[in-house]
């Protein structure tokens, strides 16, 4: 067993202020712990990892961890990461985004990064809300939920992030939750090792901006909700389409072996008669 707290000391930046910025009960800390355990398991050195983040609660993660870290503009993390990967394919790049970051303002970048199948790992922390700005509804806020900009309830259909990225061509798609923290680090280490574009959606409770407004209870209640409504993918598939309520599948949902962008690009270099440095 990898002990999170002990392992964290290896990876946290000692010159940052702790406890971290996230609210009591926020799931992002659990996700960060899972990410660190996953990286520890993959065996990459700190220098080989680049952690790119967007803007919002999840965006703060890059500040805390002792890798090559890049805190980008809102929604654009994948664009920056694409540039880094193409410039230095040796680096392992993990892109941490929130739901609004990845699927609203960064939605275009997300679908095209899937399509290109660039060898990056995207960790999308989905807490169903814009937390940092004060609880506005995001593309993953469920229907009829309250948000600071949806006081009468949301009327927009939410995205299923995993289905979205699967349809766009991601090589590896997995979902886990903060309740399934151990599974989350397993999914993440698989994703990091995977060649091609991998997406791990981490459902994560926001007890303050989302939970409180929608009477979801405490952080513990929200995690228990994940426990009660999650199913393995095979079990989920057995549910007749009309009868799926709030249930969702967790685990590996897509795992394809396809050439990634750089592999294809090396063919271009060959055709052009060049020599890839």
């Amino acid at each position: 067993m990898i002990h999170t707290s002990e392992t964290m000391y290896k990876y946290l930046r000692p010159d940052k202020k702790f406890p971290h910025v996230w609210c009591a009960g926020c799931g992002i800390g659990i996700v960060m712990g899972a990410l660190v355990r996953a990286i520890e398991r993959t065996g990459f050195t700190k220098d080989e990892i680049v952690l790119v983040s967007g803007i919002g609660c999840s965006g703060r993660m890059s500040t805390y961890l002792d890798f090559n870290t890049l805190h980008t503009t809102h929604g654009r993390a994948l664009s920056f990461a694409t540039g880094i990967k193409l410039a230095n394919p040796e680096l392992n790049i993990i892109v941490v985004m929130g739901d609004g970051d990845a699927t609203a303002i960064g939605g275009n970048h997300l679908i095209h990064t899937c399509r290109r199948n660039i060898d990056l790992t995207a960790l999308i922390i989905n807490n169903n809300i814009y937390g940092m700005t004060g609880g506005q509804y995001s593309p993953t806020t469920p229907m009829e939920c309250k948000a600071s900009t949806a006081q009468y309830g949301t009327i927009e259909k939410p995205f299923d992030i995993c289905k979205l990225v699967e349809a766009c061509g991601a090589s590896f798609v997995a979902r886990s939750t903060t309740y399934h923290a151990k599974m989350l680090d397993a999914m993440l280490s698989r994703a990091i090792d995977k060649k091609g574009f991998s997406v791990v959606e981490a459902l994560s409770q926001c007890p303050v901006q989302y939970g409180r407004r929608n009477k979801k209870g405490s952080a513990v209640d929200m995690m228990m909700w994940y426990k009660d409504n999650s199913l393995s993918n095979p079990a989920f598939k057995k549910i007749p389409p009309g009868e799926v309520g709030e249930q969702f599948p967790v685990g590996i949902l897509v795992d394809l072996d396809e050439p990634d962008y750089l592999e294809r690009y090396s063919q271009i270099v060959k055709k052009a008669g060049g020599d890839r440095l």
């Binding site: 999170t4 707290s5 964290m8 406890p19 992002i28 659990i30």
Partner: peptide
Amino acid sequence: CGLCDIHCPDYAITVKK
């Protein structure tokens, strides 16, 4: 079992190795 350890969002609890 370490469940408290891996679920603590603040890395504030651990079980002795």
